[in-house]
Amino acid sequence: MAKLKPRNFAVIGLGTFGTTVAEELARFGNYVVGIDRDEKAVNRLADTLSQAVIADGKDEDALKELGIGDFDVVIIAMGQDLEGSIVSAITVKMTGVKEVWAKAVSKMHHRILSKIGVDRVIHPEKEMGQHIAQMLHNPLVRDYVSLGNGFHVVNIVVPERLAGKSLDQLDLHAKFELRCVGVMKGSEYKGSDYASCDLEEGDRLLILGERSNLRRFTDSI
Rank of each mutant, 00 (worst) to 15 (best):
R216G: 03
T95N: 05
M94K: 14
S212M: 10
V153G: 06
I112P: 08
A46W: 00
I156E: 00
D171E: 05
H152C: 13
S166P: 09
K126R: 12
S88L: 04
S106T: 11
G67Y: 08
Y189M: 08
T91N: 00
G13E: 03
H109G: 07
A22L: 13
S196Y: 11
G15H: 08
L205E: 02
P124V: 07
V118E: 04
Y144R: 03
I68L: 15
L4D: 13
E210F: 08
K98E: 15
R204M: 13
V181L: 13
V100K: 07
E39C: 00
I75L: 14
R204W: 03
L172A: 11
S166M: 01
L208Y: 09
Q130S: 12
S220Q: 06
D219R: 09
K98P: 04
A89K: 01
M1V: 11
S212E: 15
H110C: 07
L205K: 01
N30C: 09
R142K: 03
K58W: 00
D36L: 09
A77L: 07
A52P: 10
H131E: 01
S50Q: 02
D38I: 00
L14C: 02
S50H: 04
D36G: 05
K190H: 15
T218F: 11
V42N: 06
G182H: 01
T20K: 09
V11K: 02
V32D: 10
L49A: 06
Y194I: 12
A163D: 10
V154L: 07
M184Y: 13
R215L: 15
F9N: 06
D70H: 04
G29C: 10
L214F: 14
G84Q: 11
L113D: 06
A89E: 13
P124N: 01
K185P: 03
D36C: 05
L113Q: 02
K165R: 14
V153I: 15
V74W: 02
G96F: 05
T48R: 05
G182C: 00
F71Q: 09
V53W: 05
W101C: 00
K64C: 12
G57L: 03
K64W: 09
N138R: 05
K98V: 05
M78K: 09
D70R: 03
L172I: 14
M78L: 11
C180P: 03
D198L: 14
L206N: 00
N8G: 03
H152M: 11
N30H: 15
M108Y: 05
A89V: 08
H137Y: 07
V157L: 15
W101A: 08
M108K: 12
A10V: 09
W101V: 00
M184A: 13
A52T: 05
W101Y: 14
V33N: 08
V21E: 03
I75V: 15
E24L: 07
P6R: 03
